[in-house]
Design a binder for these strands. Structure first.
Lengths: 103, 103
DNA sequence: AATTTGCGAAACCAATTAGTTGCGCATATA
DNA sequence: TATATGCGCAACTAATTGGTTTCGCAAATT
C-alpha cells in the first residue's frame, strides 16, 4: 500500500517508535514494552511505518528485528527546506527581539 | 484547542495551503481558488492550522488575511534533528553506493 | 434601502483511524 | 511430542477526519 511519510509521523506513538528504533533495532515485543498499549496495536503502527519504507525488517528465527531507515525521512526534510530561509532571515530575528521586549 | 503541528501537516491540502501562504498572505477565498474543494472545507483546514499557531490573521474590513508563521514549524525541525547525523554519516553514504550497485 | 460578498459555525455523512480481543501459525523450549 | 513464545492477521468498535450543504452575520456595493 502506498503510504505518506507525513501521515505516518502524525501519530505521537509512531514518532516514539521511530525515536526508539533510531537508537537500535528492536523486536515488536521489545518495542511494545515501552508503551501502555497492546502488542497488536504496536504491530499495526509498525505495519504503517513499514509500508512507507521508514522501517526495514530482519528475520531471526521467530523474531523480527525492525530497523529504522533514515532515507525516507529526508522527504520531510526536503519539504521543510522552504522554511529554512525564513528562520534565518534578519526580519525573523527582529520579530523575536520585538516579541521579547513586549513580555 | 490544543493542536499538534505534526498532525496539522499530515494532510496534503494543508501542506499546500502552508506553501501558498509561505509566499504571501491570502484570504480564504483566494486560497480556495487553488483547490477543487469548497471554500468551507478550506476554512476548516485554516482553522486547524490556526489552532496550532501555524497561521496568523489580519482583519481588513470583511476580509481576513492569513499569514504563515514559520516559528511553530521549528518544532518539526527540532524533532528531525535526531536523523541529521544519520544522513551525514559515511555509513549512510556507503549504503547508498551499495544500493545503487545492486540496481 | 436592498443586494451581494466574505467569512465562520453548525449539522450531517462516509471513510479512516487507533485501539481492542481472538485466532492461527511457525519457531523455540520442556 | 507437548507446550510456550513471537508474530501477523481478521473482526469488531468508538472516535476522529475531511468533506458537504445550509445558515447567519457583518461589511461592501448597487
Amino acid at each position: 500500500m502506498r503510504r505518506d511519510v507525513f501521515q505516518a509521523i502524525a501519530d505521537p506513538t509512531r514518532r516514539a517508535i521511530i525515536t526508539l528504533l533510531a537508537v537500535s533495532a528492536m523486536t515488536p515485543n521489545a518495542i511494545a514494552e515501552h508503551f501502555e498499549t497492546s502488542r497488536q496495536a504496536i504491530s499495526k503502527h509498525i505495519k504503517i511505518l513499514n509500508e512507507c519504507s521508514l522501517l526495514e525488517q530482519k528475520q531471526s528465527g521467530r523474531e523480527i528485528y525492525y530497523h529504522f531507515n533514515p532515507e525516507k525521512m529526508k522527504e520531510v526534510d526536503v519539504w521543510m527546506e522552504q522554511f529554512r530561509k525564513m528562520w534565518e532571515s534578519r526580519f525573523d530575528q527582529l520579530d523575536e527581539i520585538l516579541k521579547n521586549r513586549k513580555n
